[in-house]
Design a protein around this nucleic acid. Structure first.
Lengths: 168, 168
DNA sequence: CTAACGTTGCGACTGAGTCTCAGTTGCGTA
DNA sequence: TACGCAACTGAGACTCAGTCGCAACGTTAG
C-alpha cells in the first residue's frame, strides 16, 4: 500500500532530522495507525499490537505517539472523554467534531465560515490564536430516529462529561 | 454575602428534591467555590479547604463536585489540560474560552453569531446538539507584547497539549 | 432507645500516562 | 569485521486524578 509507505517515509524524515531512527517498532505502529484506525486510544493501539503478537511495550507506544504528534502525522484530541484520543492526520486540513452521546459516533466537519468568525473574535480580544478545538455533543441522525434521548439534562450542563462513557 | 446564600439555597433545593441533605461540608465547599474561585481544579479546592483548617476529605470534595455539576451550579470543563477543571455558573449563560499557552490565562467570550453558525452546521448534518465546547489556544495580548511565542509548532499541531503545563 | 438512612473520612484501588534503568540494536568509523 | 556510542526498547515502578468500599457518624422518626 503506497499511501502508508509515504507516511512512513515522512515520519522517517522527521526522525532523521533530529538524529532519531525509524525502528521496527515505530514502523509497525505507524502501519497499524494508518491502515486501520482513525480515531483511537493509546491502550487500544497497544492491545491491537498484542493481538498481532507484535510485542511492543506500553512505554514505546506512548513514546511513539508523542513523536508522531510532534511530527504532525497524528493529532491528540479530546472527544469529551476523560482521556486522550488520537487521530491520524490525512493530507487534508483541520476539522472539528460532532459527537453522538448515544452511540459514540464521531462526525467530522470543517466550516470556513466558523473559522473566520473565530479569527474575528480573537482579533477583537487581541488574542493571537494558534489552534482550536471544538466539539459539539448531541445525538446523531440515526440515534435520533431510534428515539434516543440526549444525555440527561443534568449531564448536559457539564461539558458532555461521560459522553462516551455511556457507550460502555 | 447574599449572592452566595442564594446559590447555597439553590443547592439545598436541588438536594432535597432527591432526599439529600445540605451538610456542613457541602455548605463550606459551595461557599469556597462561589466566593473566591472561578476556574479551579478539584485538588486545588481540597488544598484551599485544608488551608482554612476545614478538614474535608478528597472523596467528599469529588462527591460534592459531582452533585454541583448535576445541579447545574458548576460546570466541568476541559481547558486544554489532561484533567478536568471546574467553573461555577453564574446567572449568565454559556461561554467559550481563549486560553493563553504562555501564561495560562483564560479569557471568556460569548458570540451569538458563532453559536448560530454551529446550529446551521448541525442542521446540515442532521445532528441534534445538546452542548458544545470550544477552546481557542494561543497567546494573549500582554504575553504577545512581552514577545512570548506561541507553543512550538510541533505542539501546536496537537490540541494544545500541555497548554497549562507550561505554566509550571 | 433504636432503626433507618444519608454522609463522612480513610485508605485501598483503578487506569492513563510517565519515568528509570539495564540491556539491545543499529550505524558510522577504523 | 569489530568497536563504540547513541538511540532505542521492555519491564516494572511510579504518579496523579479520580473512584470505591466500608465502618463509623449524625440526624430524624418512631
Amino acid at each position: 500500500m503506497p499511501a502508508i509507505d509515504r507516511e512512513i517515509h515522512r515520519f522517517e524524515e522527521f526522525l532523521s532530522r533530529q538524529g532519531q531512527k525509524l525502528t521496527r517498532e515505530r514502523t509497525a505502529l505507524v502501519r497499524e495507525i494508518f491502515s486501520t484506525h482513525y480515531h483511537f486510544e493509546a491502550d487500544e493501539l497497544l492491545f491491537k499490537m498484542k493481538e498481532k503478537s507484535l510485542k511492543i511495550s506500553r512505554a514505546t507506544v506512548y513514546r511513539t505517539l508523542e513523536l508522531l504528534v510532534k511530527s504532525g502525522l497524528v493529532r491528540r484530541v479530546h472527544l469529551g472523554e476523560d482521556h486522550y484520543h488520537y487521530e491520524h492526520v490525512r493530507g487534508d486540513s483541520h476539522h472539528d467534531h460532532l459527537i453522538c452521546t448515544a452511540c459514540g459516533a464521531v462526525i467530522e466537519f470543517n466550516d470556513p465560515e466558523l473559522e473566520r468568525r473565530q479569527l474575528e473574535i480573537c482579533a477583537r480580544k487581541k488574542f493571537t490564536p494558534t489552534f482550536h478545538n471544538l466539539q459539539i455533543l448531541g445525538v446523531c441522525d440515526s440515534c435520533h430516529r431510534k428515539g434516543e434521548q440526549p444525555a440527561s439534562p443534568d449531564r448536559v450542563m457539564s461539558i458532555g462529561e461521560g459522553a462516551m462513557r455511556l457507550r460502555k
